[in-house]
Simulated assay, not measured.
Amino acid sequence: MSTETDDPLFTEIDLEWEHLKNRLFLGVIFAASMFGVVMLALLLLDVATDFYVGVTEYDIGLGEFFTRDGSRREELAGFRGAIVASIMLMVLTAILSFFVGVGSAIYLEEYAPDTRVTRLIEANLANLAGVPSIVYGLLALAAFVNGIGIGPILIAGSVALALLVMPIIIVTTQEALRSVPDGVRNGSYATGATEWQTIRRVVLPAAMPGIMTGTILALARAIGETAPLIMVGALFVNRTPFGPFDRFSAMPTQIYNWAAEPSQHFVHLAATGIAVLLAFVFVMNGIAVYLRNKYETDI
C-alpha cells in the first residue's frame, strides 16, 4: 500500500523553491506599494516645505491669501476667487451628474433587460470611467464653448466635469445596487409593493452608502482636475465669479498659472494653494467616510 510521500504529485514539487517564489512575489508587491507611498510622502514634504518657506520668508499672510482675488502682482495675489469658483463648480457638477448618473444606473440595473445592447452600454460606461480627463475637456470645448457659443464660463467647466464623473457615478451606483441582497427585494414584493416602491423605499436606502461614497469620491477627483478646465478656457481671471455665467479660474488652474510664473514668490503661492486644495480633498474624503458610516448605522 503506497503512502502520500510515494505519490509523484508530492515528491516532484520543490517546496523550498515554491516558498522562495512566494517570498519574492511578496517582496515585489511590497516594494511597489512602498514606492507609491514614498513618492507621495516626498511630494507632500516638498509642498509643505514650499508652504512653510512662503509663510515665513516671503510673508504670505493666510488672511490676505483667503480674502484677495488673483492678481499679476505677487504681493497682492490671493486665492478667494479660485476657492469660490471651485465650490460653485462642485455644486453645479453634483447637480448635473448625480441625478442623471443615479437614474441611469437604476434603469440599467433594475429595469433594462439583459440583452446584448445593455451589456454593450455597460461595457462602454466602464471604459468611459477610465478615459483621460482632457478628452472631456475637448468635448465640452467643441460642443458647448465653441459649438453653442456660451464661451469659457463656469457652466461650461461644470458640464466638462459632470461628463467626467458621470460614468464613475453610474458604475459605482450599479455596484451599490448589486450589493443589495435579492432577499430584500423579494421580501418587499411579498408584502405587495410594486417594483418602483421596492426600489425607492427598500433598495435605494440600502444602497445609499455606496452611492454617496462613490459620488463624493468622484467629486473629490473632479475638484483637482486641471486639463478639462484649461480646455474650456478657465485660465487667469482676477475676480470672484458670482454666477454660473461668469468667467472663472478654479483652484487647479490658479495653481497652474502660479507655478508657471518665473518668480519664486508665485511658486510659494502655488504651494500654499496646493495645501488648500489638498485640505478640500481630505475633507471631501472624510465626508464620504462619515456618510457611509452614518447610513450603515441607520439602516
Rank of each mutant, 00 (worst) to 15 (best):
T213H: 04
Y52H: 11
V171K: 05
G130A: 11
A123H: 12
A126K: 08
V84A: 07
L62P: 15
P209K: 07
L177R: 02
T272N: 06
A41N: 06
E12Q: 13
V283W: 00
Q197P: 00
G210W: 00
T11Y: 05
I287H: 05
E175A: 14
T226N: 12
G70S: 11
F66Q: 07
E75G: 03
Y189M: 00
I230L: 15
E75R: 06
L45W: 07
A162N: 13
F282N: 09
G157P: 15
T115F: 03
R292M: 11
S249A: 13
F79T: 08
F242W: 11
F10S: 02
L154Q: 12
V38D: 12
A270S: 10
S133T: 13
G130L: 04
A288H: 02
N285H: 10
I216M: 13
N285W: 12
A234Y: 10
D246W: 13
I230V: 15
A271H: 02
F99V: 15
E18C: 04
L92S: 14
H19E: 06
P8W: 02
L204M: 12
G273K: 05
T118W: 10
E110T: 03
S104E: 03
L44W: 09
G151S: 11
R239T: 14
K21E: 10
A250K: 06
D298S: 13
I155H: 12
Y189K: 00
F144H: 08
P113H: 00
N293Q: 13
I170F: 05
D46Y: 08
A206L: 09
L277E: 05
L24Q: 02
T49W: 08
V202E: 11
D46L: 11
L204T: 07
G187T: 01
M212K: 01
G27I: 00
P167A: 10
D46E: 14
V37H: 01
F99I: 12
W17C: 02
L139T: 09
W258L: 09
I153C: 09
F30Y: 02
F144A: 13
L219T: 07
V38M: 10
N22I: 08
N146A: 15
A271T: 02
M1R: 09
G27L: 01
F280L: 14
R221Y: 12
L141A: 08
G81S: 07
R292H: 12
V100L: 14
R73V: 13
G286F: 05
I87Y: 05
G101A: 06
F144Q: 07
V100K: 03
N257E: 14
T191W: 00
E12V: 12
G243V: 11
G151C: 14
R72H: 09
G27V: 00
I287E: 10
R68M: 04
F98Q: 07
L24G: 00
G81M: 03
L92V: 14
M166R: 00
D50I: 01
I150G: 12
V84H: 07
H19M: 09
T213F: 03
R116N: 11
I121H: 04
I150R: 04
G214K: 00
I199P: 13
A190R: 01
P262V: 01
L42M: 10
S2R: 02
L24M: 02
R200E: 05
E18H: 07
G103Q: 03
G27H: 01
L20M: 05
T3Y: 03
